[in-house]
Computed example of a mutant assay.
Amino acid sequence: MSSSLGNLRDLYQQVILERYKKPRHRGKTDPVDRYQKGHNPSCGDTIELTLKLNAAGDTIDAVKFEGEGCAIAMASADLMAEALTGRPIAEALEMVQRFQNMMQGQEEFPQEFRKLNVMQGVSQFPVRIKCATLTWHTLKAALEAAEPGETDHFISNE
């Protein structure tokens, strides 16, 4: 194994643990302009995303999450919330697709989002990919929902 790959794996583990233990975007946005629950049946991760949009409704002002799950799911949610704050919805949806492509080893993020590239480490463990992508699937459903407000249905990433 090359040393750079070893370093990437160390960084991956370090970032995941740090974000899991001390998430920066846990909670609920005020107001809640979009709300979506996500669930990963294969391992029991559950996430509740809330989004605050700008006045025009086309840009994400804040993303917060609550839920229970493994370190990968929670770290992915926290990194996603950080990366998408201040982004136009159209760009956020493109980033969802890019993240999914990255999980399949096809793409990575440009330098300004290099923290998200740390999550590439997950792609080596196919069974954990759903843990990393849960929050992104949930975000996509939240953004594509026409009406704000709380719904009881979960989005599942099975």
Rank of each mutant, 00 (worst) to 15 (best):
M1I: 10
S2T: 15
S3M: 13
S4L: 15
S4Q: 14
G6S: 12
G6A: 13
L8T: 06
L8M: 13
R9D: 12
R9M: 15
D10T: 13
D10L: 14
Y12V: 08
Q13E: 14
V15C: 09
Y20D: 09
K22S: 15
P23F: 07
H25E: 07
R26K: 15
K28Q: 15
D30V: 12
D30I: 11
P31T: 11
V32A: 06
D33K: 08
D33C: 11
R34G: 04
R34Y: 07
R34H: 08
Y35V: 03
Y35S: 10
Y35N: 05
Q36G: 05
H39T: 02
N40P: 04
S42Y: 09
S42H: 09
S42L: 15
D45R: 02
T46E: 15
I47W: 06
E48I: 12
L49W: 06
L51P: 05
L51Y: 08
L53I: 04
A56L: 05
G57W: 00
G57T: 00
G57L: 00
T59Y: 00
I60R: 04
I60D: 01
D61R: 14
D61W: 02
A62H: 07
A62V: 02
A62R: 09
A62K: 10
V63S: 02
V63F: 11
F65E: 03
E66S: 12
E68M: 08
G69K: 07
G69A: 07
C70S: 09
I72H: 04
I72W: 07
I72D: 05
M74R: 14
A75C: 06
A77T: 06
D78N: 07
D78F: 03
L79S: 04
M80I: 06
A81M: 05
A81P: 01
A81H: 02
A81S: 12
A83M: 05
G86D: 10
G86H: 11
P88W: 02
I89R: 10
A92D: 03
A92Y: 02
L93M: 11
L93C: 04
E94Y: 04
M95C: 05
V96I: 11
Q97L: 10
R98W: 10
R98S: 13
F99N: 02
Q104F: 11
E107L: 07
E108K: 13
P110C: 07
P110E: 10
Q111P: 08
Q111H: 12
Q111A: 15
F113Q: 03
L116P: 01
N117D: 08
N117F: 07
Q120F: 06
Q120A: 12
G121P: 06
V122M: 03
S123E: 11
Q124R: 15
F125S: 08
P126V: 04
P126G: 01
P126L: 02
R128W: 02
R128M: 08
K130P: 03
K130R: 12
C131Y: 01
C131E: 01
C131W: 00
A132R: 00
T133A: 01
T135N: 09
H137L: 01
T138R: 03
A141T: 09
L143H: 01
L143G: 01
E144H: 01
A145V: 03
A145H: 12
A145L: 10
A146W: 00
A146H: 10
A146R: 13
E147G: 06
E147L: 05
P148Y: 02
G149K: 04
E150T: 10
E150G: 00
E150V: 14
D152K: 14
D152Y: 04
D152H: 12
D152A: 13
D152N: 13
S156Y: 10
S156I: 12
N157G: 06
N157V: 04
